[in-house]
Amino acid sequence: MTLEILKTKEDLRNLIDDYAYLGDEKKITEQLDLFTPDVTYKVFMNGALVADVSGRENMESDFNLHSSQVKTYFTLNGQHTTKIDGETATGVSFSQIKMIREADGKDVLTDYSVKYEDQYVFQNGKWRIKERIGYFVIIESRTIS
């Protein structure tokens, strides 16, 4: 493995970690800079397609709407495997995402176990996410005190 490949793998890992950090901090505009302008983003929950968004502007609307309904996000990234081919790459990563929303005056914690399948491109000196598919495999909600 060359130093260039190792550097690219590190850059791609930082990209998915930055996505999580910025999302947890609700820095949507900065988070969207991690995507190509023509990004596609799909979400499957329990096998059903629940979101299919194209383009950064549409994502911004969706992300802002979602963020306005969540009091707190907490993301923990796990494995991240990549295959690099010049200025394009693919990746699979796993995350645990916790979200606290209010329902009927009570805080509800929803715990998500997520597998992401990504396509990346190197543009203007930076790696960006061109396509992201999120598979929300396990979803658990409970009221917390």
Rank of each mutant, 00 (worst) to 15 (best):
L15G: 05
L15E: 00
D17H: 13
A20K: 08
Y21A: 05
G23C: 06
G23L: 00
I28G: 06
F35G: 06
T36K: 01
P37M: 12
D38F: 02
D38E: 13
D38T: 09
V39H: 00
V39C: 04
V39G: 01
G47S: 09
G47H: 07
A48I: 14
L49F: 04
A51H: 08
A51M: 14
D52P: 09
V53C: 08
V53G: 03
S54W: 03
N58C: 01
N58S: 15
N58H: 10
M59P: 06
E60V: 03
S61W: 01
S61E: 12
N64V: 07
N64T: 11
L65I: 11
L65D: 13
S67F: 12
Q69D: 10
K71G: 00
K71V: 02
F74M: 14
T75M: 03
L76W: 01
L76H: 03
N77G: 15
H80N: 11
T81C: 08
G86W: 14
E87Y: 13
T88S: 15
T88I: 15
T90A: 02
S95D: 11
Q96L: 14
M99A: 14
R101E: 01
R101G: 03
R101D: 04
E102T: 05
E102I: 00
D104E: 15
D104Q: 14
K106W: 08
D107A: 13
V108P: 02
V108E: 08
L109P: 00
L109I: 10
T110E: 08
D111F: 13
D111H: 13
Y116L: 12
Q119R: 09
Q119S: 11
Y120V: 03
Y120D: 02
F122G: 07
N124Y: 10
G125D: 15
I129N: 01
K130I: 04
E131A: 09
R132G: 06
I133M: 02
G134I: 04
G134T: 03
V137P: 00
V137F: 03
I144H: 06
